[in-house]
């Protein structure tokens, strides 16, 4: 494998050199988001991408004075798509994790996430490990919540992983799931909808030191540009204004 490594390093260097010149020439940044994770990213009735991530992406592009194109991409393939150069950045509420850092780079955070359990109102749910024994717990596949369940509860509980958060909500509503583990902010939004009536947060939030940032390819100079832009919009109040559109509390 050593030769392979050397060759791929050379190929990578060549690709990055080529990639950055191409990006400079076009000066158009393609940004991927998922489009199924309200209120952070979703689609309106016209099929346009909306949400906190999309607003932040637009604000950052305005700050950098860059032309941007925002595209929707399924969560499962969102990192492979970045590596395959289908787009240049992911602004899709993605957490910085060790595993992801092995394959992509992250900018500074643009918000911080906590996890929370959701279950039917009035139902007594003990969220300790012993209390969750034998329960069916759901989360979205390839998320921090899904990983948290696999790492901490796989031995005692029945874990079900969903393609989208929406499908997990559907199964919580149908009663197939006893409890749902989710990022807290999107769940906060869902609990206020018609479908989310009759459900509530259970127990304490789980703080997993989860920083949400923009993913870019390894070594891409876009990182510094994004970092400067994030700093700028936090300082000039643009961030606060976007935050207030979605949550009555700061999520930075």
């Amino acid at each position: 494998m050593k030769i392979n490594k050397l060759m791929s390093a050379a190929a990578l260097a060549a690709l990055t050199a080529f990639g950055s010149t191409a990006a400079m020439a076009a000066d158009k940044i393609r940004i991927a988001t998922e489009g199924a994770y309200m209120p952070f990213n979703g689609m309106n009735e016209q099929g346009e991408l909306i949400g906190f991530d999309v607003d932040i992406a637009r604000a950052l592009c305005a700050e950098m004075q860059a032309e941007c194109e925002i595209v929707a991409q399924d969560w499962d393939g969102i990192i492979p798509g970045l590596m395959g150069r289908k787009y240049d950045a992911i602004i899709a509420s993605m957490s910085i994790t060790e595993e992801r850092l092995r394959v992509v780079d992250f900018t500074d955070r643009y918000y911080s996430n906590v996890l929370a359990y959701v279950a039917p109102e009035g139902k007594d749910v003990d969220i300790s490990k012993a209390g969750l024994e034998g329960k069916t717990i759901g989360a979205q596949r390839a998320t921090i919540a899904g990983q948290y369940l696999e790492d901490n509860l796989a031995d005692v509980a029945n874990i079900k992983l969903y393609d989208t958060q929406d499908n997990a909500y559907l199964d919580l509503a149908s009663g197939r799931l006893d409890v749902l583990l989710s990022d807290k902010f999107p769940a906060y939004d869902w609990l206020r909808t018609e479908d989310g009536k009759g459900f509530e947060f259970k127990g304490e939030d789980i703080d997993i030191d989860d920083k949400i940032a923009i993913a870019i390819r390894k070594g891409d100079p876009l990182k510094e540009k994004f970092n400067a832009a994030i700093k700028a919009i936090v300082e000039d109040g643009t961030y606060e204004e976007i935050n207030a559109r979605y949550f009555p509390f700061s999520i930075y």
Binding site: D76, G77, I79, P80, E99, R100, R102, V103, G138, R141, A142, G146, Q147, E150, K160, L161, Y162, D163, D171
Partner: peptide, 22 residues
């Protein structure tokens, strides 16, 4: 695999979600 079953594809997707080795 789209309805949470861990058949070959479901298992593969769950593994890839963790390892990023599609």
């Amino acid at each position: 695999s789209t309805i949470t079953l861990l058949d070959i594809t479901g298992a593969a997707r769950t593994i890839i979600a963790r390892t990023y080795t599609p």
